[in-house]
């Protein structure tokens, strides 16, 4: 197997890497680019801990190949805060104690951010279904859902 050269953008930074043709994008992010914020909980798209966006579209990075990233815009949890300023979702997750162990948290944040960008005023049910692909075993989801609902409220208020 010869490796593939890929040029892409990760969290706004131009990045180049070599990867095996069958290597997942998650493995590239974690092992080649040192971006370990995306987690591998299942490797089969069932837990959402590796959620990222590719060209703005929410995906599981364990279900994409590194080679596919050529020319794409990739966003991970590491790019969510702007400098010192946390994204409102990050602040609300802390405020609501929406994490216990924290392993699922990056995936939830990336997925919730994608939701609020698409639908700034989601109902509780819409949030629950959008996030159904993100498993959390600690919280029973209660505080996570509340944190997302509260963020949506606050972001709406900030806009109006």
């Amino acid at each position: 197997m010869s490796q593939i050269h890929v040029s892409t953008t990760v969290n706004g930074d131009a990045v180049e890497f070599l990867c095996e043709p069958d290597e997942t994008l998650l493995t590239v992010l974690r092992d080649r680019l040192g971006l370990t914020g995306s987690k591998e909980g299942c490797g089969s798209g069932d837990c959402g801990a590796c959620s990222i966006t590719i060209d703005g579209r929410l995906v599981c990075s364990c279900l994409a190949l590194g080679a596919e990233a050529q020319g794409c815009e990739i966003a991970t949890i590491e790019g969510m805060a702007e400098g010192e300023n946390l994204h409102p979702l990050q602040s609300k997750f802390l405020e609501h104690a929406a994490l216990q162990c924290g392993i699922c948290t990056p995936g939830f944040l990336v997925a919730a951010k994608a939701l609020l960008e698409k639908n700034p005023d989601p109902s509780e049910t819409e949030i629950r279904y959008w996030l159904a692909g993100n498993l959390c075993r600690c919280t029973g989801y209660d505080k996570i859902i509340r944190a997302v609902m509260d963020t949506a409220e606050e972001m709406k208020a900030a806009k109006s």
Binding site: G45, D46, G48, S51, I54, R57, L58, V59, C60, L63, A64, A111, A114, L115, W130, L131, A132, G133, N134
Partner: peptide, 9 residues
């Protein structure tokens, strides 16, 4: 089919 993430692909 699958989650929101899977729907993206």
């Amino acid at each position: 089919i699958g989650s929101t993430q899977v729907q993206g692909r």
